[in-house]
């Protein structure tokens, strides 16, 4: 039998990260869950390992501690075949408007950290000539809106970064997938009122990511296709009108 493929999940303690790890493990991939809080990460790793019989390990990463990234990669004991990055922080939109430290935390958690880390792995992939990078960005990054523009701006940065990477490796076997899940029922959105037709379960996101990275290659995926339509409409509203809307 072939050596199993190796998936690295950044943000493995999140609901989407956990669902992705399970989906890939069900397909026989070995998985490393990386995150900041090792105890809950170990709980998820044991869960997935017991369900699938596949080896799941954990690794510590603080996405804000950029100087530690090189050591983190060395500690993995091998370059992953695919990386899914689900790192993110919604933050408090009101607070981010007035508190620069909080705004900076949101920007660094959603853009700087993930972009630098994925960029580092991209160099490894370039050398090997192969690899899949999946970045979970957000529809919030498609157009800045009053309700959460700091978060949206950081996600817009990540979306542009992923788009650039994809363009750079467009003629190689390295693939870059941007995921914009729309609303997802997770710990991050617990307590929010989400419209059911627009809301995906973490398992749906994981299935879409698995398909886009291992079955039928895609560049940009919206998990619920209706989001592509919604964001196209939102994107096409002229700015003089858009700025007066409450979205």
């Amino acid at each position: 039998m072939d050596e199993p493929k190796f998936l690295l999940v950044l943000g493995g303690g999140s609901d989407i990260g956990r669902a992705c790890a399970l989906r890939f493990a069900q397909a026989g991939w070995r998985v490393t869950l990386a995150g900041r809080d090792l105890a809950p990460l170990k709980r998820e790793a044991e869960d997935i390992a017991t369900r699938t019989g596949v080896a799941i390990t954990t690794s510590f990463i603080d996405i804000l501690d950029t100087p530690s990234f090189a050591a983190f990669e060395t500690g993995l004991g091998g370059l992953p075949d695919a990386i899914v990055c689900v790192v993110g922080l919604l933050g408090d939109a009101r607070r981010a408007e007035t508190d620069p430290a909080h705004a900076s935390l949101v920007m660094r958690s959603n853009f700087e950290g993930p972009a630098l880390l994925l960029g580092q792995f991209a160099e490894g992939f370039a050398e090997r000539g192969e690899g899949v990078i999946v970045g979970v960005s957000s529809v919030a990054g498609d157009r800045g809106r009053a309700s959460n523009y700091v978060y949206g701006a950081a996600k817009a940065g990540l979306t542009a970064f992923l788009s650039g990477l994809r363009n750079r490796f467009g003629k190689t076997k390295i693939r870059v997938v941007t995921v914009k899940p729309g609303f997802v029922r997770t710990k991050m959105t617990a307590g929010m009122k989400l419209p059911p037709p627009l809301t995906a379960e973490p398992q749906e996101v994981a299935e879409a990511i698995y398909r886009a990275s291992a079955v039928k290659p895609r560049d940009v995926i919206y998990v619920k296709p209706v989001w592509r339509l919604i964001m196209t409409i939102i994107g096409s509203i002229p700015e003089p009108i858009f700025k007066r809307l409450k979205l």
């Binding site: 709980r43 998820e44 044991e46 869960d47 017991t50 369900r51 019989g53």
Partner: peptide, 8 residues
């Protein structure tokens, strides 16, 4: 929420 497998 207590939905995790532990060991086999």
């Amino acid at each position: 929420g207590l939905g995790r497998f532990r060991h086999f």
